[in-house]
Amino acid sequence: MDITIYTATGCARCKIVKGFMEERGISYVEKDMKADGKDDFQAFYKANRSAVFRGPEGIEFPIIYDGENIRQSIGAALAFLHAGKKLDGFFTVGTLHKEWVNGIHVSGGDPRYAEEFLYILRYLKDKNMKLQLETTGKNSGVLKQVLDEGLADVMIMDVLGPEHLYSRLAGEEIDIEDIKASLGLIQSFPEYKIRTVIAPVIREDGSVSYLTPEEIALTAKLIGEGSGSNKLPYMLKAFEPKEAQNPEFRKLEPIVNLLPYRSKARTYQVFADIEK
């Protein structure tokens, strides 16, 4: 496998990925987009513009390319080099910098490849990176392993909605006991946050509407049942229609006032608040 790695001068994450390839004997060519590789990166970017992710601080490096597949940022690059496409879903492009790595999704990948997933987390921790992971509660077994090995510095749990809507919101069949098991683990992480995006739901009759304050109350109730606590740091976040992938959701007006949601959520989670 011949890999081209696009880097930026002084990018410590790029060095870690290059080191990984050297350890594995993977041959690669480096193109530093701020130095000799500038023209090559320009040509790559021109040909693959739509596949290159931009975070708030611009294009995230490194980017690896094998002539067919592109993987961007440290986590996704290492995962692909280690296990090919098996770990797709566990990693997306991270946007945190310095020693922090995010874009790591415990629920996003196939739990059959948990060991490969954990290997990448161990590798990153071994390189003194701090990891911010996310979960929707699915794959609680993998979450338990992450916890037991101390692989997460921050865990963010996105509780999608109330029990009766969870599968609908996730877009796949969800075992609610899996979600409750994850909720039971969340307080054991060194730093954690639970949040719910007030998302649109495609209702049984096909109509689209946001989660209601009553449904958010039931979500807070689910969190309480799963975790055994009604005093968790629980944040509510407005959905941003313009960033939605579903074109139907993009037509929605954003929710302006989240206070009714917060009031209802506090019935079951007394510290519920609104994320700015």
Partner: peptide, 10 residues
């Protein structure tokens, strides 16, 4: 009428 893109911004 168009856009200019650098690694940093669009």
């Amino acid at each position: 009428f168009g856009q200019a893109e650098s690694a940093k911004t669009v």
